[in-house]
Design a protein around this nucleic acid. Structure first.
Lengths: 214, 214
DNA sequence: ACCTGAACACCGTTCAAGT
DNA sequence: ACCTGAACACCGTTCAAGT
């Protein structure tokens, strides 16, 4: 009789104890997040895409929130890494450091709008997230804070609490990012140039408020 | 026998065609939104709180998204109204107009964090929302835009596209509002003074970037 | 015209049972 | 140690039936 009835072309092999399920669940979750948005993601579908039963994920994540938190955590780590990279890249130009950090922040959010919404949109209760998630979010914020401190050491900014300057910078890039991610602007997410321009225009305006008047 | 068995102290009366169900569903939805956050809101619970069967809401809203959109719409209308009010209140001082508009934006978002997350967090696909919702969001944005135009007519701002200035202003207050609503800052949402201070500090910094250098 | 209750497909979570 | 399948309570949505 017919053999090819329940063919699954998932990963070309299916060891029934396949070892790296946790990682596969994560990538499946990110895939589906991109497809359905954070509100439309179901744990059962993640399991199905990963090729396991709907209860298998519970061996690797306490519950759905824990999976979502792990995805968000990747987002925070990614953001922190990119900010630190920018800080190194423009080490000698503190003003440029901050501008490019802002551009990177917005770019990353726009490239992964659903992840951004997951990180900041209210799907996770940050108060009952694992401390790791909170730490990684902190690390991303600290990336910005360091860049601002750097500029202040160089004496280019007005004499204000670095916290206040950083909060202003964070707010403006975060706001722009969320507006674009939420499709509130007329911007097509693919249009990298237009988004860079927005980020640069907005960032430059704030920069003029941060810099010492000459 | 005992009469007080299935007592419901809902609204002290229960006309079985009670007329204003649509409005009651909306207020019930807002209540539950406050309680469970946008991710935890269920249509069935809304119906139960309103005292009707779980299928009754479908006479008044096409589906769950339509109910959520209606709640979001109230949020946009509210915001637009407050911005217009501020514009009138400080009509003679365009600089103050913009600062206070920012404060109002942040205040409103912090007082209703769950509604704010519903409006901007990715629970609604703005592209398939009713045109009314889009219009009301536009109206809120136009409130800010008018305030910026007003300042430009008065000649206080740098010579830039009013769109760019407005986008910067919107981004910074929106970002701050989303960060507070999402509990990303250490701010307790009840602490009105602290939030006003943050809004004013951040707004003033941007303002220095918008104003003509003297 | 408005509301109910049964029905369906889906969901998150648990748990005994399998390998 | 890791995964499955049945089970439970819940969910959004539909539809015939009630008033």
């Amino acid at each position: 009789v017919n053999v090819a009835m329940t063919e699954e072309v998932e990963e070309a092999k299916a060891p029934y104890h396949h070892g790296n399920l946790k990682a596969e669940l994560l990538t499946a979750a990110i895939d589906l997040l991109r497809k359905h948005g954070p509100a439309g993601l179901s744990l059962r579908e993640v399991a199905k895409v990963a090729g396991v039963s709907h209860s298998a994920p519970y061996r690797h994540f306490a519950d759905k929130s824990a999976l979502l938190a792990a995805v968000a955590r990747q987002g925070f780590l990614n953001l922190a890494a990119r900010l630190e990279q920018v800080a190194k890249e423009y080490e000698l130009d503190p003003k440029r450091q901050l501008i490019e950090a802002g551009v990177v922040y917005v770019e990353l959010a726009v490239q992964n709008p659903e992840v951004t919404q997951l990180m900041f949109g209210g799907f996770l209760d940050i108060k009952q997230c694992s401390p790791e998630v909170v730490e990684d979010a902190q690390r991303a914020f600290n990336g910005l804070l360091e860049i601002v401190r750097n500029g202040q050491k160089a004496g280019i900014y007005r004499d204000r609490e670095p916290m206040n300057l950083t909060l202003a910078a964070w707010s403006i890039v975060h706001g722009l990012a969320m507006l674009i991610a939420g499709n509130q602007l007329r911007v097509t997410p693919g249009n990298v140039d237009e988004i860079q321009n927005h980020a640069r225009a907005v960032g430059t305006l704030l920069m003029q408020g941060l810099l010492l008047p000459k």
